[in-house]
């Protein structure tokens, strides 16, 4: 535990004061880590705590981002309409899909969420009148001007994202330590026993799915403002599986691990693509090496897996 605590403190410090000394390129990368870290944490609730391996989680992220894009560029909606609209639409989608997938488990869950995620990707790719197809939608206003903040710039956006992500992370940490979180872990370990103890396991899994969708939507809203455009790549299979990799590489059921995973993938992606065009080849190898060498995730190296 000591080692983990020290690492957490160093990371928190880096997130807090790092951007003050970094160039704007690195602030941009760190912003990506913060937003994708939030997204990876939301998947961790499902994958790590509830034991529901979702391979379509990027869909909520992407749909929320699309909602912001469509509302702000197509309807000239104000800042709060976009933010609340994006979160509501993403969450409503997870509430609808959750009703379909919450009674399946394990590998079936994996396959069905994969198919649902790809159906939504297909919608973003082909429903051209609304989504702009492959070109996506550009021209999303910057968060600072849209919200009417007196200051602007990458540093401002970074600290807004950090504040939102830290708030969400605190809520998620609270959630997984609550009796609800304990029940989720118990369902992961032994669902029939929890059922016979009188727990409504379907409802717990369903709520976990919706909550994960909610936090993914928050990340999606931030991401839309960060990039200023949206495209189908936000919700394709590669995005969902990269997310999956962040969680498993970092360490499932730790919340902090997925952030580390997100950081590694973002850094690796940007550093590697500066040196080689064969980034996909490298990423493919990262998957294989990660599965072979750190099946429990980096955050759990040297620790017994917390159950």
């Amino acid at each position: 535990m000591e080692g983990r605590r020290a690492v957490s403190a160093v990371l928190a410090l880096a997130f807090l004061i790092g951007p003050l000394v970094l160039s704007s390129y690195w602030i941009g990368l760190l912003t990506q880590v913060v937003i994708l870290g939030l997204l990876a944490m939301s998947l961790d609730i499902l994958l790590g705590y509830a034991g529901l391996p979702s391979l379509g989680h990027a869909a909520f992220f992407g749909v929320a981002a699309y909602a912001v894009a469509v509302l702000s560029t197509g309807y000239d909606a104000g800042f709060w309409t976009c933010v609340i609209g994006g979160i509501l639409i993403g969450t409503a989608l997870s509430a609808a899909l959750g009703a379909i997938v919450s009674h399946v488990r394990d590998v079936y869950f994996l396959m069905i969420t994969l198919a649902l995620g790809m159906v939504l990707w297909g919608l973003s790719y082909r429903w051209i009148p609304v989504t702009g197809g492959d070109n996506g939608i550009s021209g999303i206003p910057s968060l600072e001007s849209h919200a009417g903040l007196p200051v602007s710039g990458p540093l401002v956006f970074y600290y807004v994202s950090l504040l939102v992500a830290a708030g969400c992370a605190a809520m998620m940490a609270r959630l997984v330590r609550s009796s609800f979180g304990l029940t989720l872990r118990a369902i992961r370990e032994n669902e029939p026993r929890m059922k016979s103890l009188g727990f409504n396991t379907w409802l717990h899994c369903y709520l976990a799915y919706v909550i994960a969708g909610l936090f993914a939507s928050v990340a999606g809203v931030l991401w839309a403002y960060y990039n200023g455009f949206v495209s189908p790549t936000y919700l394709d299979l590669t995005a969902s599986s990269e997310l999956f990799l962040m969680v498993t590489l970092g360490g499932p059921a730790t919340l902090a691990g997925p952030v580390v995973g997100a950081g590694l993938i973002v850094l690796l992606k940007n550093v590697m693509s500066a040196y080689t065009a064969r980034w996909l080849l490298v990423l493919g190898m990262v998957y294989i090496v990660a599965v072979l060498t750190a099946p429990q995730g980096l955050w759990n190296l040297g620790h017994r897996r917390r159950t």
Binding site: L110, T238, S241, L245, G284, M285, Y287
Partner: peptide
């Protein structure tokens, strides 16, 4: 699944 994802990218 992760393994096959890696191979798909490769």
């Amino acid at each position: 699944m992760m393994m096959t994802m890696g191979f798909a990218l490769l």
